[in-house]
Design a protein around this nucleic acid. Sequence first.
DNA 1: TGCGGTGTATTAGGAGACCATCACGCTTAT
DNA 2: ATAAGCGTGATGGTCTCCTAATACACCGCA
Lengths: 114, 114
Amino acid sequence: MTDDRPVYLRLRDRIAAMILEGRVRDGDPLPSVRSLAADFGANPLTVAKAYQTFQEEGLVTVKRGVGMFVAPGAADRLRTAERKDFLENRWPRIVSHMRMLGLDTEDLVERALA
Amino acid sequence: MTDDRPVYLRLRDRIAAMILEGRVRDGDPLPSVRSLAADFGANPLTVAKAYQTFQEEGLVTVKRGVGMFVAPGAADRLRTAERKDFLENRWPRIVSHMRMLGLDTEDLVERALA
DNA sequence: TGCGGTGTATTAGGAGACCATCACGCTTAT
DNA sequence: ATAAGCGTGATGGTCTCCTAATACACCGCA
């Protein structure tokens, strides 16, 4: 209801949040696909699909038979990429939508600090 | 690429924008499903599906064999509903996402709506 | 009355996401 | 050496959603 996006994308967001919020740092081990699958009530392959998107960007390194680890500088690179995507793609649309709805600046900022 | 959402939802946004921006007013005829389909390169039934979401909310009235028309007070009701949805559901997530990225919400909002 | 416009019910196709299963190769700890 | 845990590959199936093609029912006007 609240989020109808695919499971593997929500998992991707969860993993990204762990890195961006510093809950896991460079070189730290990430949760195994099996444990994350158990936590999330999902299939291990679905979790693997989420991790795969980070591997392709070199943000996590894989040691076969051991696990997945945060790549060096992953947090910075991820933050840079996410900022760029947000500011260049998402934010302009959000702004035009807000203008179309005639939303007030004070109202938005006020709610943002709640 | 830039928007992977279903066609009927993008059409819904386009129709909503026509109403919210006052390009069509109460009682005005809306583009026929066939003409909109031709413009958008979509199927007439896909357009009909977009219109259907507005019918269910009573924002457009249907005259079979004639066309679709903007219902009385549609713009106001639509604006109210869209504002509520944005402020209650979308905006909080956007704000938390900006915080995670270390972006200044207040600064961005003021620049955007200046 | 006939024609061209309208919306729409039916039906079917296709794509994507997700899960289940089995198996394999790898590494680490016991 | 053995066992346990790890990521990964190959299949296959199911489910949901989106989209499409066809055909039909309706209305207004010449």
